[in-house]
Structures are given as C-alpha cells and as structure tokens.
C-alpha cells in the first residue's frame, strides 16, 4: 500500500498549448542516464531556451510560478514517447498534480504508477483556470481528488478522473506492484492456459 492522495494544494503553473509531447517535456538527450535523479532542472529545457532566446519567458522560468505544485495544461498533454522520464522530470521539478483537458494514455498510466494524479477538465475550464493562475500567480490552487474539483480563489471547476483511478489515489493503491505480486499464483494459472507459453507443445 502506498500513501493516500486526496488533496493537493499549492500554487500553479500554466503550460499553454495542445499536443505538448514528451520530447518537449524532456528532450531525448537527457534520457542518457540510469537514474531519474537530476531530470527536474531539464523539464521543458528546449522550449525554455528557445523562448529565452526570443526574449520571452517560459512558464517554468517565470519567477511568478517558482515553487508551483500544480501544472495546468490543455489537450493531449504528454503525447508521443512512452518515456517515464517526462512525468519524472515534472515531479522532480516539483509538480504534484496535473490538470488538463486530456492526456495521452501512456503518459497518464505513468503518472498513476508514480502517484502523480492527473485530472481532466473541459477545454474552456482549462483556459479559465490558466487565466485565473496568470491573473494571480500567488493564489492557492486546490486539486481535490475526493470531490473532483479544482478551486482557485473563490472559483470552483468540476474535474474528472476515472472511478478506478480515483479510488486508487484515495485508498493509496496507485502503486499496483504489490497487488500484482499478490496475484502471482493466478498469474501462473493464466500462463498455463496460454498455448504459446509452452510453444504449443
């Protein structure tokens, strides 16, 4: 059993744009490593550098959002490569929860396995939450997995998460490994019934 996760609150950082892929979250050159340590400082590195070169500032470089715990994104966040280095980099940077319109499934699954809850909101709400955070970067943002809500200042938005995953976070069963291990005798029984496991002999 892992820790229960029901409410994350802290400041938020908006990362605007659809289809932000994992190559952008953590460029491939940082995957040359045998541990996830040290990935946090390289989150969004190329996007950050390009904006800086163009005289602009990426949200991850914007001092107003330093120390944020909640990432607010838009559609199809984390698409592309299966690299768990992407959510690991975000987590190491300090992110404890993500709010977006939708996620790539592999990215979402990686986040669950790490205990990083990802809630879904509508397109309009993702933009409204981002706007609220930009307006008041110091505001406390509450990501409530129990009530399925995102709250900023006096405003509340409805959020979604599959019932099974919600339960996993609330009961501290998001780390599936021990549960999977408990099923090992049944795993062997399933394997025994699959003709290819014994090469059809």
């Amino acid at each position: 059993m892992s820790a229960t996760i029901s409410l994350i609150s802290g400041r938020a950082v908006p990362v605007v744009g659809n289809d932000i892929d994992t190559d952008r979250i953590i460029p491939a050159r940082f995957l040359r490593c045998v541990t996830f340590d040290g990935l946090g400082e390289h989150a969004f590195e190329d996007d950050r550098r390009q904006l800086t070169a163009a005289g602009k500032t990426h949200a991850f470089d914007d001092q107003r959002f330093t120390g944020a715990k909640v990432l607010v994104a838009n559609s199809n966040f984390g698409c592309g490569s299966s690299r768990e280095h992407a959510p690991q980099a975000l987590a190491k940077w300090g992110i404890d929860a993500i709010v977006a319109v939708s996620y790539s499934e592999i990215f979402f699954g990686n986040c669950v396995a790490m205990g990083l809850p990802c809630l879904r909101v509508s397109v309009a709400d993702s933009e409204a939450i981002q706007a609220a955070v930009v307006k008041d970067p110091a505001a406390q943002v509450a990501v409530d997995i129990d009530k399925l809500e995102v709250r900023v200042g006096g405003q509340t938005w409805k959020a979604q998460m599959g019932a099974g995953h919600r339960q996993q976070f609330l009961t501290g069963q998001w780390d599936a490994t021990s549960e999977l291990i408990a099923g090992l005798p049944q795993v062997r029984a399933t394997a025994g019934k699959l003709p290819y496991v014994s090469s059809f002999a």
């Binding site: 339960q167 069963q173 599936a176 795993v187």
Partner: peptide, 10 residues
C-alpha cells in the same frame, strides 16, 4: 488474470 481492487485488470 483477475480484476484488481482498483477495477483495472491484471
């Protein structure tokens, strides 16, 4: 293999 307490499948 079975249905896990989370409702997902093993």
């Amino acid at each position: 293999v079975r249905t896990l307490p989370s409702g997902q499948n093993q």
